[in-house]
Design a protein around this nucleic acid. Structure first.
Length: 825
RNA sequence: GCGAGCAUGGCGGAAUUGGCAGACGCGCAGGAUUUAGGAUCCUGUACCUGAGGGUGUGUGGGUUCGACUCCCACUGUUCGCACCA
């Protein structure tokens, strides 16, 4: 064997076979381990049949981390599966005119084959496939548990509706300016009966839990804002002349004396109640047009605030004043109570509305240093200040007024302290075919009845003539499937034709993986106790307010009912950055998409995955260059030739790498071992690779100067450990080298080498001499030289003396071990 | 509009309790070896400059003996949220 180039095309299949035959990647979850690591990376969405560069970017580095932890002596669980239900698979099926099941199965098998090419250490016995009945049985089981605890409920609600695709869209499928992600049509809203999960019940817990986990601050902030907790008060405004009241939520009870009108949202049921006969027509027209406005129209910039007077009035709870009730779409039906008290002088939105419709304003807060005049106000004064025109509260600072006013309202039974959230309950029903059926039955006598647990799964019928979306659930068209009997009374009843959002599937997969080799139990309590929480979870930050909240919510719920031993699913979260090409995002339209297959074919899987890791900081992303990969190719081949040229006859002895090596080699080696471990722990793959390159450069330098007398055994000892450190990055390559060095078993059962801290301590340092902060000289000095001596050395320097002539020495700063700065003027 | 991140050679990127800017790699230039190579090895490579030196981390200020690093303002860029009362 004297190849000049590493023959990856022969080695990779051979090594993969070796791993399979020797069960190198098998993991026994029941065999207790002293130290464990659960490393999870978000699973893939098999929508088309090809593995793209994003998969490699996600799975390669995560696998490197997992293998590293394994070699550090941890028992590592790194599972992989397929999130195969949902729109991507279904849409692809529609496009190619094949049944979603067929499309899904095909792409799973082809993607799995490609995933194996990455060289990751997945043990496929723990694979999950969310569209298989043995998985969605537990999705349905989860639904039943939530239903049982009153956390799943059916309600009439507004949904995103794409008129061209004829379907409901998830919020995630509506792009930012209100267009359909797929067809680009404007999304409208529609009132539909939907299933919801009561995630809002967990709002506070989800907020508090953020304090306990090591997740990126940006993601925590995103989740905090998404949950959007705000403190304030409920205030009741009794209706004038008729029975009832309008309840509003406000964060500014201190502005109550500035209320000049009240507004209800168009979708509010109050509209009908408060509208007077003579205004009926106008109000109806307005409500209709507001509700049918598209997202684009409603969010248009600088749009004038529209609304109409309902003809109804309320009474101010403190002053008794009669205030008009308006209906306007700047008030959201889904937040708070769907009604607000308008304080135009102190709320910009109310201010604009009042101006538009000539409504009165009343100033009740002023800045501490001046008085405001309505005529001079160009915008609302929203800051804190001193209350005025507020009966006996006048003169009170507004910050204190909030409580004082609320207390007074409480005494009058007209209000109370309250907390509201921006977070909404999670709408989970989809009018689509390719998902887990909702396991309930609609019975004329008993209403909504849950399917019995022992009757799960409710199978998704595979025989279906037309699975395309047409506005109602395709399942509804299959009579023999829809018709069933009521689990409670036994009379004929109908199934629910909706399927569940795919985010339900992925909300518990981390628990299911641990029992995936078992089909009769959803979870394995013993294993969960051992393996949870996830130690490192890797995935895109784009899931921050979707999956990552749902998954925390469901874990919390399962914890509460005694199933999950932990409340927070993942201790550490890492988001990968974005890979670009030519500085811009890869996209088909820009024709700059990198096809991994091409480069894997040319350089091999190991080189490809290392190059991805080398491109940049994993969390920030990198810029792909077709030429850059050759640097990694060269590096791997440089190591390859060392192994070829210094291949031992027998086994390499385990003598430590000590001071008898050239100092630069000795130090580069120990520094490499230390730095690679630290860098890997921090997901800094790029700098770890640099350290290995430095060592290889040192070895070549040694050979270059000393080719005749270099001790083969000495090189072999370094090489052996270098291969071990390189193994998590280049698994096939290193396993092959390992075998060529006459070692037994798998390299992945080796332990990470130790480094010698002493090697990193330098005896002499290079002392930098600065004059006024500029480097003027460098001197050799023993590392332990004291401050005084360093100062003397600096002043003795001839070059420094030249500069000292130009001014007077004012100050000397000595940083031991580093530098001396002389300040002159 | 609001919030968060980012900005360093020809290119990708290193460097943080403030202390030698440009590690490592690509590219480029020169040399060696080779029948030949787009293989391999070695050397050089921020910019300006005549040596000495000067200038440099998006722009403008500030703090400091000393700033890529900390503070303020601005510009560009990416991402998220968008009337949340």
């Amino acid at each position: 064997m004297s190849e000049n180039r590493y023959p990856f095309w022969e080695v990779e299949p051979k090594i993969q076979k070796f791993w399979r035959e020797n069960h190198v990647n098998d993991i026994d979850l029941d065999d207790p381990a002293e130290k464990k690591q659960y490393v999870l990376v978000m699973f893939s969405y098999p929508s088309a049949s090809k593995l793209h560069i994003g998969h490699w970017w996600n799975y390669g580095p995560t696998d490197t981390y997992s293998r590293f932890k394994r070699m550090q002596g941890y028992k590592v669980f790194e599972p992989m599966g397929f999130d195969s239900f949902g729109l991507p698979a279904e849409n692809f099926a529609i496009k190619v005119g094949t049944h979603p099941k067929q499309v899904t199965e095909q792409s799973i098998s082809s993607i799995q084959a490609q995933l194996e090419a990455i060289g990751a250490m997945y043990d496929w016995r723990y694979r999950v496939i969310t569209s298989h009945a043995d998985y969605y049985k537990w999705t349905q089981w989860l639904f039943l548990k939530l239903f049982e605890h009153d956390l799943a409920y059916e309600n009439e609600g507004m949904v995103n509706w794409c008129p061209s695709c004829q379907t409901v869209l998830a919020n995630e499928q509506v792009v930012s300016d209100g267009h359909c992600e797929r067809c680009g049509a404007e999304v409208s809203h529609k009132k539909m009966k939907q299933w919801y999960f009561r995630i809002t019940k967990y709002a506070d817990e989800l907020l508090l839990g953020l304090n306990e986990i090591d997740w990126p601050e940006s993601t925590k902030t995103l989740q905090r804002n998404w949950i959007g907790r705000s403190e304030g008060a409920w205030i009741k405004f009794p209706l004038d002349g008729i029975e009832g009241e309008i309840e509003v939520f406000t964060t500014r009870p201190d502005t109550i004396y500035g209320v000049t009108y009240v507004v209800v949202a168009p979708e509010s049921s109050l509209v009908e109640k408060v509208t007077s006969r003579d205004r009926l027509e106008k109000v109806k027209d307005y409500v209709n047009s507001a509700l049918h406005a598209t997202e684009v129209e409603r969010t248009a910039k600088n749009r004038a605030k529209t609304g109409v007077f309902t003809g109804g009035y309320v009474t101010h709870p403190l002053t008794g004043a009669k205030l008009p009730i308006w209906v306007a779409d700047y008030v959201l039906g889904s937040y708070g109570t769907g009604a607000v008290m308008a304080v135009p002088a102190h709320d910009q939105r109310d201010f604009e509305f009042a101006q538009e419709h000539s409504l009165p304003m009343q100033i009740v807060i002023r800045p501490t240093d001046q008085f405001l005049e309505i005529e001079e106000m160009r915008e609302a004064y929203e800051e804190e200040g001193i209350m005025q025109n507020s009966e006996n509260f006048s003169g009170v600072p507004s910050v204190d007024g909030k409580n004082a006013v609320t207390e007074k309202l409480e005494k009058l039974n007209a209000g109370a302290k309250a907390v509201t959230y921006r977070l909404r309950d999670w709408s989970i029903s989809r009018q689509r075919y390719w998902g887990a059926p909702i396991p309930v039955v609609h019975c004329e006598d008993c209403g909504v009845v849950a399917v019995k647990e022992e009757d799960l799964p409710v199978l998704l019928p595979e025989e279906i003539e037309d699975f395309r979306p047409k506005g109602t659930s395709p399942l509804g068209g299959i009579r023999e499937w829809m018709e069933t009997t009521c689990p409670k009374c036994g009379k004929p009843a109908e199934r629910d034709p909706n399927t569940m959002d795919t985010f339900v599937d992925s909300s518990f997969y981390h628990l299911r993986y641990l029992a995936a080799d078992n089909h009769s139990q959803p979870f394995r309590p013993d294993r969960m106790k051992e393996w949870l929480p996830i130690d490192t979870y890797v995935g895109g930050s784009d899931h921050s307010t979707g999956h990552l909240i749902y998954f925390r919510f469901i874990t919390r719920f399962l914890h509460e009912i005694g199933i999950s031993p932990v409340a927070e699913p993942a201790r550490r979260m890492i988001h990968q950055g974005l890979i670009k090409k030519g500085g811009i995002k890869m996209s088909k339209s820009k024709e700059n998409v990198v096809n991994p297959d091409l480069f894997v074919k040319r350089h091999g899987a190991d080189v490809f995955r290392i190059y991805l890791m080398f491109m940049g900081d994993y969390r920030i992303g990198g810029d792909w260059s077709d030429e850059g990969i050759s640097g990694i190719d060269r590096f791997i081949n440089r190591v390859w030739r060392l192994v070829r040229d210094f291949r031992p006859k027998g086994k390499v002895d385990g003598t430590p790498i000590a001071k008898d090596y050239p100092e630069s080699v000795y130090r580069a080696y120990h520094f490499m071992v230390k730095a690679v471990a630290e860098n890997l722990e921090a997901f800094s793959f790029n700098t770890a690779i640099s350290r290995m390159m430095e060592l290889v450069n040192e070895l070549y330098g040694w050979l270059d100067t000393d080719a005749e007398i270099v001790d083969h055994a000495a090189i072999q000892r370094i090489l052996k450990n270098l291969i071990i450190v390189l193994a998590p990055f280049a698994p096939h390559f290193s396993e092959e080298c390992w075998q060529r060095m006459n070692e037994e078993g798998s390299i992945f059962d080796q332990t990470w080498p130790e480094f010698d801290p002493e090697a990193l301590v330098q005896d002499t340092i290079e002392l930098v001499i600065q004059v006024n902060g500029k480097v003027r000289d460098r001197l050799e000095a023993p590392a332990d030289t004291d401050k005084k001596r360093l100062e003397e050395m600096a002043l003795e320097s001839d070059r420094v003396k030249e500069f000292l002539k130009t001014g007077t020495l004012r100050k000397v700063i000595v940083v031991p071990g580093k530098l001396v700065n002389l300040v002159i003027n």
